[in-house]
Each structure stands twice: as structure tokens, then as C-alpha cells.
């Protein structure tokens, strides 16, 4: 565990000393802090606008940070040959990879915590009080970003930098629409009017297409479950059970991704 922590700590330090990290991070903070200035475009809905805009900023800028950090994590170690001196020390490959993931997780946590704290402060100022739902939304945003970072890291054990970035962003967007995939794959179950209309027999092409969609649905992370913006802007209560389930799902999904990454990394040659 000591070795894992040493790698994680170094990964965190490296991440926060990168220029691009500070550019995106400061840009995100400015965007969240200035959300109140733009809230005038939605009179009477200032509170909801600030929340929506702020959480959107956390997700977007957070995603840029985790995708870039995750995608460059292993290729940059190999390109710079820093991995040679680390793996020639008493460091197991799995320790190196878990350390890298934990370093990424720590960076994501600090980033989201800072951006989230600012959003909560701005929102509380507008709403004249703390809305616990905003805190819940920030927590879910962290786990959503953690999954995206784990995807980028897993891809980076084998792929090139460009592939890793494209792959992670693609999975993010598909994952954010995962319930739509299921609707497309099973229209009879999900479209309300399907019960009242005559159902055409499914052709083999449609059958294959639906199978592919279902497979993608089960493989990609269900990131739309983490997005509780709709519930919050409609003043619905987000149950703690939902938060707990999402956290559990996020941790399990990340664990599987890290295991996949370890397997891919184990016989990698440098």
C-alpha cells in the first residue's frame, strides 16, 4: 500500500503542477462564480439557472481535466521513459496502475470539491440558504467524472493519446444517453403508444441492430443516472437511496475498469 500511495501522491502533484490543469480549473471557477451575472436571462428562475449553469460547468471542465489527465497518464510515462526507472524499482505493475488511478481520483476529488464548494456558495447566496440537493448533485458529478477518468486510464494502457481521448469522450457522451439506447433497443417496452398500436414483426437486421444497442447499453456506464439536474430544477427531492446506489455503481464500475486496465498492463512491453 505504501508504494501505491507514493505513486498516487506523485501523480497528484504532477497533475496540479500542469499548466493546462490550472487554465481549465481557473476558467471553471470563473464560470461558476459568474453564473449569477447571467441569471438575468431567466427572470424568476435565477436559482435554477445558477445551479444548472454551475453544475454544467463542473461536468464540462471536470471532464476535460479527467479525460486529458487519464488519457496521458500511461503514454506520457512511456514516452518520457520515466516508467523505466519506476518499474526497475520494487514496484509491481498493478501497484503502479492503482497508484496512478488513485492519483487521478485525488486530483478529481480536489477539483470537484473546489468547484462544488464555489457552486454551493453562489447557490446558497441566491437561494438564501443551503440546498442539500446541490451538494448531492456535486457528489454525483464527482463519481461521474471518476468513471470517465477510469475509462481514459484503462484506454491509456494500450491506446495512443488521440485514441484514448476520443474513446473516453465518446463513452462519456454515449453513457450520458444510455437510457436512450435502451429505448431504441426495446421500443415496445419503452414507448407508451406501442401498447395500443399493432406491432410489426422484427426483421433480422433490426434484431441485430437492437442486439448491438443492448450490448452497448450494458457495457457503457449509465452516466445519465448521475445527472439529477432535471429532478432538482423541478424541485423534486433526490432520495439518498439514489445517491447511495449511484456511488456504489460508480465504485464498482471503476473497480472493474481498474482490473481491466491491470490485465491489459500486466504483459505490456516498454
Amino acid at each position: 500500500m505504501r508504494v501505491v500511495w507514493v505513486i498516487a501522491r506523485n501523480t497528484f502533484h504532477e497533475a496540479i503542477r500542469r499548466k493546462f490543469f490550472w487554465v481549465i480549473f481557473l476558467f471553471a471557477l470563473v464560470a461558476i462564480a459568474s453564473a449569477n451575472l447571467f441569471s438575468g436571462i431567466a427572470p424568476g428562475e435565477e436559482k435554477k439557472f445558477v445551479f444548472d449553469f454551475g453544475l454544467g460547468s463542473i461536468t464540462l471542465f471536470g471532464m476535460l481535466i479527467v479525460v486529458f489527465l487519464g488519457a496521458t497518464m500511461i503514454p506520457s510515462e512511456v514516452d518520457r521513459r520515466t516508467i523505466f526507472t519506476i518499474l526497475s524499482k520494487p514496484v509491481r505493475r498493478w501497484q503502479f496502475l492503482i497508484g496512478k488511478f488513485l492519483g487521478l481520483a485525488l486530483t478529481t476529488l480536489v477539483t470537484v470539491a473546489c468547484m462544488g464548494a464555489l457552486l454551493i456558495a453562489v447557490h446558497s447566496y441566491i437561494a438564501k440558504g443551503l440546498d442539500i440537493n446541490v451538494v448531492k448533485a456535486v457528489v454525483l458529478a464527482f463519481f461521474q467524472l471518476l468513471i470517465v477518468g477510469a475509462i481514459a486510464l484503462a484506454a491509456s494502457t494500450r491506446g495512443s493519446l488521440a485514441f484514448n481521448i476520443v474513446f473516453a469522450v465518446l463513452v462519456y457522451f454515449v453513457g450520458a444517453q444510455s437510457s436512450s439506447l435502451l429505448t431504441l433497443a426495446e421500443p415496445e417496452k419503452h414507448l407508451a403508444h406501442a401498447h395500443t398500436q399493432h406491432v410489426e414483426p422484427v426483421s433480422w437486421k433490426a434484431y441485430v441492430f437492437r442486439g448491438v444497442l443492448k450490448t452497448i447499453y450494458w457495457l457503457v456506464p449509465h452516466l445519465d443516472n448521475f445527472d439529477v439536474r432535471q429532478a432538482i430544477v423541478t424541485d423534486s427531492v433526490v432520495p439518498w437511496q439514489t445517491i447511495f446506489n449511484c456511488i456504489l455503481y460508480g465504485l464498482l464500475y471503476c473497480s472493474v475498469l481498474v482490473i481491466v486496465a491491470i490485465v491489459l498492463f500486466q504483459d505490456q512491453e516498454f
Partner: peptide, 28 residues
């Protein structure tokens, strides 16, 4: 084992003290 690669490149955000401290930590 100790290893010096050809044309070594290390974490350039660190200074010499920090770099050696990092490797020392790996050995516990």
C-alpha cells in the same frame, strides 16, 4: 538493482531533492 537509462528523463516538475525523495520512498 540500480538502473540508469540512456538519456534519462525524470518528472521535470520535481527538483533533485524531491526526485530522490520519491525514489527513496519507493524503497520504503
Amino acid at each position: 538493482i540500480g538502473f540508469l537509462p540512456d538519456g534519462p528523463y525524470f518528472y521535470d516538475f520535481l527538483n533533485a531533492d524531491e526526485l530522490l525523495d520519491f525514489y527513496g520512498r519507493l524503497f520504503g
